[in-house]
Amino acid sequence: MSIIEAIFLVVLQPIFWLGFLLVAGIHFKRVKSERSHYHVAINRDFYEGRHYLKNGILFSVIGSAILIAIGVVFPLYWVLIYEATAFLVILLELVWDVSLFFLLVTCLLPISIQAIRTLAPQLLSTQIDKIVPRDFNSASFMLLCTLFFLFRWLMIRRFSPEFLVPQVRQGKRGRKLVSYTWKEFSVVPLIVLVPGSFSQELVPFWPLITFNGKHYAFLVLPLVLSGFVRIWRSSIRTGAANESLQAFRLFSFCLCGFIVTVFLPQTAAVFFAVLVLLVILRFIQRYAKMKKKGKWYVETYDGVRVIAIQPNTPAAKMNLEPGDIILECNGKTIANENEFYMALKLVPTFCSLKVKTYEGELKLTESAVFTDSPHELGLILFH
């Protein structure tokens, strides 16, 4: 298959562009919400769309090259079922992070069928053979899980605090609380091989290869991918690092599972069951740790809490992060937002801050301010 044909297969996918339109909708909704709650857009950059395209195209090239080079084959009917249900999953991504759940559910069907064939073949009818042929190796699905966690790990490694979306709510004791979410979503069009020459019967110029007397057609499998971080009782850097580590561990486990199942196909069900268990335990362990340790990002009476930082502003140059508490401004101790703005006006073109981080460390930072408006500093505070 030529490079031009490969690009044609990817660009032709309507589901890829549907995902891009939904990402554009997410961006406009976020900016509108920020202007409504904070009277300013925290980050007006359309980074969601830029990252969607970069991740989708880059991961498509990497994943497709791996799948074709290894010669991994997927059942035709399973690919068609996956593509049909992927449209619904993309719509659900607007509300929930369901990409991992969708991947596990869709891989569970063929792996379970192969396991039942090994243990109790009399329980399955011959009609099942159309969905998952008897000679099919379940290692293909372990490789698909491997690519998913590899891409999620690479996606989370690009995390930056400037992409966090703050969510403020009222606490039980009258003070405001803020939590943070970061989510990037993409559709990765993976070019995969399926047995048969049906494609050329429908579209004569569709790419087709022949190996050992068998025909294989190229189809595009839209891998729904998301990176998700939610922070509410841990430092931002720690929260992102933990999510990255978990994704890398799951990638490593799936990679080992794929290598083993290539030679021992009957072990696929065991590795997949352990993978599902690890995912469930990860969610339980994460929330258990959150409730046992750490403190909320809460409105404070000892200084002012920074909710967010606008990119490319003096505040961003001062290496301030969401969750920092400003204790002093231009040499003046402050206890609330009004005192902070009054201290800023003492030196309109310069700002020096004493800050306490989420971990409780003290730091001094300073920067020039180009106008005498406090909002030009680039800080988003509790109001």
Rank of each mutant, 00 (worst) to 15 (best):
V347S: 15
F253G: 02
E83W: 06
D302Q: 09
T313F: 01
H39L: 05
P195L: 03
T313G: 04
Q285P: 01
V31F: 01
V304F: 01
F211C: 03
K214Y: 12
E366G: 08
G56N: 12
N319L: 13
A368H: 14
A6T: 13
F141V: 12
F59K: 08
I90L: 15
E339S: 07
T238M: 09
L250W: 10
P189V: 06
F228L: 05
E361K: 15
A84K: 11
S60H: 04
L119A: 11
P314W: 01
L277T: 15
L281V: 11
R237L: 10
L53G: 02
V188H: 04
S367M: 11
S197Q: 01
L379S: 05
T333I: 11
N336H: 12
Y287P: 00
I90A: 07
E93T: 14
K317T: 15
S234M: 08
E328C: 09
P133L: 10
L123A: 08
I26V: 06
L255D: 02
L275F: 14
F87D: 03
L67H: 01
S186C: 02
F20M: 07
K289C: 12
L109V: 15
R169C: 02
I259D: 02
I62R: 04
R237Y: 03
I334E: 13
F59I: 09
I284W: 09
A335Y: 13
P207H: 05
R157L: 08
I62L: 15
P195Y: 00
G49C: 03
V178R: 02
L67S: 01
V355D: 08
A217E: 04
V355K: 14
H375M: 11
S352Q: 13
L278F: 11
L219Q: 08
G49E: 10
P374A: 06
L150M: 13
F370I: 12
T85C: 02
N336K: 07
V178G: 04
Q13H: 02
L103V: 10
F198P: 00
C107L: 08
P374K: 10
F46V: 12
R175P: 04
W206D: 00
I3M: 05
C329K: 03
Y47M: 04
E48M: 13
L58V: 14
R158L: 09
L275K: 06
E359Y: 00
K295Y: 03
L12E: 07
R30L: 00
L21T: 12
F205H: 05
Y52L: 11
I7V: 10
A241D: 08
W296M: 14
G71K: 07
W182M: 12
E184M: 13
F340S: 03
T126G: 01
C329R: 04
R30A: 09
S186N: 03
L379G: 01
E93N: 10
S186Q: 06
K54N: 09
E201V: 02
K130V: 07
R157E: 12
A139E: 01
N43H: 01
Y301W: 02
Y301C: 01
H27G: 03
S179N: 11
K292F: 06
G171Y: 05
Q13L: 08
Q246D: 14
R175Q: 11
L221Q: 13
I68M: 08
V224K: 06
Q310N: 07
K354N: 15
A268V: 10
Y358R: 06
K130T: 11
